[in-house]
């Protein structure tokens, strides 16, 4: 797994639950040096056992941890979340544009970090206000991270949405309730 992903998990746990929780999770997953380098690559099983031990330490399911990880990428404290939400805002003028652009997300991310290969995402418009989002193979639990990201991005755009896992189907259903629920966060092309 790319070091950036592991660094994101580290930042999420440290910022949300504190260094002590992070040390406990690392100890349980046997993470060397209890930290990650953003530009190195690590074995996939290490990331999986890290997620599992985070869930155990936090007494939550791995799915819930991954969803919170996703939303912390966007709305977490610190410069890192500012950077991700700005980069994602470039992909669409509105939340619906952003949903359509999810198909391009792996390519968009590879433009920024060529060796970071994300699973494919597919978006299907079922009604003008109802979308079905599914993910390609590769990363178990990836759709939960996407769930968290979508929830946080809807907030960014000021849109009220319902996001649910659909029984018996492998994807997420995104229902747009109100496109102008709040003003959302201002976005200018100007770099901060």
């Amino acid at each position: 797994m790319h070091g950036l992903i592991n660094c994101a998990i580290e930042r999420f746990v440290r910022n949300t639950y504190g260094d002590q929780t992070w040390r406990m999770a690392c100890a349980a997953a046997a993470v060397p040096e209890q930290k990650f380098e953003p530009l190195l690559t690590y074995e996939d099983p290490l990331t999986q056992s890290l997620i599992a031990s985070c869930a155990e330490v936090l007494r939550r399911t791995p799915d819930e941890v991954l969803e919170d990880l996703g939303s912390s990428l966007i709305s977490g404290a610190g410069d890192a979340a500012v950077a991700t939400r700005r980069l994602l805002r470039f992909s669409g003028r509105s939340f619906v544009d952003f949903l359509y652009a999810l198909d391009d997300l792996p390519d968009r991310i590879a433009l920024a970090v060529p060796d970071l290969k994300l699973p494919e995402l597919h978006v299907e418009e079922q009604r003008p206000d109802l979308f079905y989002v599914s993910a390609g193979e590769g990363w178990p639990g990836y759709l939960h991270v996407v769930h968290g990201v979508l929830r946080a991005m809807a907030d960014e755009y000021g849109v009220l949405v319902l996001i649910d896992l659909v029984d018996g189907k492998p994807g997420l259903e995104v229902q747009v309730i109100d496109m102008a629920f709040t003003a959302g966060r201002a976005f200018t092309l100007r770099a901060g």
Partner: peptide
């Protein structure tokens, strides 16, 4: 000029270029 995404046509790569500049700076 405080330009936004709406000031460029969707086919224009300017917004992608700005994205690249910002992503590059971070990398």
């Amino acid at each position: 000029y405080d330009l936004t995404q709406h000031d460029f046509p969707e086919t224009d790569l300017t917004v992608e270029m700005l994205y690249m500049i910002e992503a590059n700076t971070l990398a």
